[in-house]
Design a protein around this nucleic acid. Sequence first.
DNA 1: AAGTATAATTGTACCGGTACAATTTAACAA
DNA 2: TTGTTAAATTGTACCGGTACAATTATACTT
Lengths: 236, 236
Amino acid sequence: MLKYQQIANEIEQYINEQQLKQGDKLPVLEQMMNQYAVSKSTITKALELLERKGVIFQLRGSGIFVRRHNRPGYMSLFSTQGFKSNLGDRVLTSDVIDVSVMKPDALVAENLGIGVSDDVYRVERVRYVDGEVLCHEESYYVKAIVPYLNREIVADSIFDYVQSALGVTIGFSDMYLQVDRLTEGEAGHLGLQENDPTLRIETIFHLTNGKPFDYSRITYHYAHSQFVIQANGPYM
Amino acid sequence: MLKYQQIANEIEQYINEQQLKQGDKLPVLEQMMNQYAVSKSTITKALELLERKGVIFQLRGSGIFVRRHNRPGYMSLFSTQGFKSNLGDRVLTSDVIDVSVMKPDALVAENLGIGVSDDVYRVERVRYVDGEVLCHEESYYVKAIVPYLNREIVADSIFDYVQSALGVTIGFSDMYLQVDRLTEGEAGHLGLQENDPTLRIETIFHLTNGKPFDYSRITYHYAHSQFVIQANGPYM
DNA sequence: AAGTATAATTGTACCGGTACAATTTAACAA
DNA sequence: TTGTTAAATTGTACCGGTACAATTATACTT
């Protein structure tokens, strides 16, 4: 692991262990340099990472401060798809409905940048947080990149698997959000009524080289899904 | 304006002018150094900015490539609140319903980190994109930070005003998303029916020093609001 | 033609430095 | 006490460098 990542982790851990609150001041840059015995730019990179994650904010001439949002129940929009699971101590489980190899339809193929004759894995799950229905997920993986999946893998975190077992690293993703009404089928999976409100999120996950490898459609249970986004400044 | 910001702007402009597409390659780092006559680290910072904005992605050993999402109709979630208005050529207008000074209720006061005896500006607007109803907004500004507002300012971009006229710069913001049903009053503003689905977004905007100065509640018209988020990697 | 080793390309990590702008603290004056 | 000025603190911009890992292109082999 890179130095600046390691340091970022340690600082974040320190914040959590000490139960620091919004506005609490952290040691100054120079002290961190000495403490971790690295150059200023390495500390700066670590802090920049934490700033992007919404863990701290920096104020020139003043110091480095803890940043915290104050709504414990809310999930980070960027943590649902396996990214860092900062759900706190809540447990995420899954009912696997389908894992199969198939040919994609035109829409799926286009979103994945492949042809309709290329193979994809189709995964369908219902996901729960502490036993409550969170969402219904329909997800397509490019088989050329993710050559094998099964129900055990899919019941756990798919992203952990592709990353650790296949060495596939996620580069970036495009998320499309939309509010809509549930269809009858979706409502059944979520334990809701047809035409109930829902948040639909389509996401296209890309490798670091820009190639799409996962296209997923998630339908959220409106009563059990509250999200937080911690944004930074005019430039984000 | 800072060098790396200026360079980032020019590169982005270049991409738009040349109508480059996803995956198109940009000049290599060294050429950019020469072209802009700055050091490598300055170019790197500019590119990093663009990467965070979702404009490019970089691949070590390979090059710098254009990144684009392919859904023109979708708005960036970070551009709605005055941030960069990348709505393309679409026109954003507002109906101002209320601009007044008042005392905040307990909830508003808490979100703004002030007391219930401190003054706030209350702003209520309905916002339109190309004439179609986009959202209903109820927003509270700390009067100690934003001492004056009127209907003219509020009809335009409040954020442009506080930034240019008051020298107030936004540091970061916490956004809370939730899907719900419309109340009767909200439905009236949006031209919808009671209990229709909606996306509610509450946002707390902070200054660079971490002090909240704006708390806003926005209710989106579900049929006219489609959002895109371009996220970067596991760490964001 | 197809695989394999080798070299060139290219961005990233990390170092260490100077200058500076924003903030805070201290000293001072009214 | 209150406001003002000066000095110290502290993070950011920018420079220029070395080393290196990932990718791509080249040369070589089979």
